[in-house]
Simulated assay, not measured.
Amino acid sequence: MKILRGTVFGGIAFFLLGWLVYGILLMDYSSANYDQSIYRADGEMIWWALIASNLAIALLLTLVLKWSGAKAITDGLKTGAILGFLLSLNINLSFYSMTTMFLHFSGLVVDVLVFTLMMAVIGLIIVSLWGKKSKDTE
């Protein structure tokens, strides 16, 4: 149940947090620092793929948290931050080297920091939803 609960609630939290951070708070920053020609128009979004990507990253984080034996919310924060940092650094450096997605290196740095913080928060949420340890929640 932990894996299912972590995946579903982590995926929902990732979607909502991504919408808040990238869609609202960093909208102007993104316009100034990222190549806007790569984005689909609002009406052309492929929603199933966005939902699937949020569930996939939540499943990955949930599995890593479970395998690491995370029990406290600080475990979720720490593990989420480390995984988020390494994943985003890998992907963003790859994009920076092969695409024109980032107009400035600072855009890469901000994206790595934001994704790291988001994964830390999602890790905290996932672990906090596990609740007290019992035989039926394993």
Rank of each mutant, 00 (worst) to 15 (best):
D42G: 15
L86V: 13
Y96S: 05
D136I: 04
F102H: 10
F85L: 14
M118V: 15
S53D: 06
Y96Q: 07
S68R: 14
D136P: 00
A72L: 12
K133M: 07
M118G: 13
V109P: 05
K132P: 11
A120P: 10
A58M: 01
V21T: 14
K78R: 07
L86A: 08
S68K: 12
L86H: 03
I91M: 13
I91H: 09
T7K: 09
D35T: 01
G18L: 13
V21I: 15
S37V: 06
Y29R: 05
S134H: 15
G18A: 12
A58E: 02
A52H: 04
W67R: 14
F102W: 10
N33Y: 10
S106P: 03
W48D: 08
M101G: 00
Y96P: 02
V8D: 07
L60C: 11
V121K: 01
N92A: 14
L20R: 03
T137D: 11
S134F: 11
L63P: 03
T79G: 11
Y29E: 07
M101I: 08
L16K: 06
I122S: 12
V112S: 06
A13N: 04
K2L: 06
V21Y: 10
L55N: 01
G23C: 11
R40E: 07
T74N: 13
K71S: 12
M98F: 10
A41W: 01
L77H: 06
M45H: 09
L16Q: 09
A52V: 08
S37H: 07
I122R: 00
A120R: 06
I91K: 01
G43E: 15
I38Y: 15
K135V: 09
G107P: 05
F14G: 02
A58C: 00
T74F: 13
W67K: 15
S53K: 06
I73M: 13
M118K: 14
L55R: 03
A13G: 04
K133P: 04
L26P: 02
S106M: 10
D111A: 13
L113D: 02
K78V: 12
L103A: 00
L113W: 02
R40H: 03
I82W: 05
Y29C: 09
Q36C: 00
Y34N: 00
R40N: 08
G76E: 11
D111H: 09
L65I: 12
F15K: 00
I12L: 15
I46T: 12
V109C: 13
K66Y: 12
M118L: 15
L86E: 03
N92K: 05
L87W: 11
D35H: 11
E138G: 03
G131T: 07
S68T: 07
G6L: 09
S88V: 01
F85N: 05
F14C: 00
I51K: 01
F105M: 05
T99F: 13
F105S: 11
T62H: 03
L65T: 08
H104A: 06
N90Y: 13
A13P: 02
V64N: 04
E138Y: 04
F95I: 14
F14Y: 14
F15Q: 06
D111W: 05
D111F: 05
M1T: 03
L59D: 01
A49N: 04
V109E: 05
D136Y: 08
G10E: 14
Y39A: 04
W19R: 10
A70D: 05
V110G: 09
L63W: 01
L108E: 02
I12N: 02
D111V: 04
I24K: 05
V127E: 09
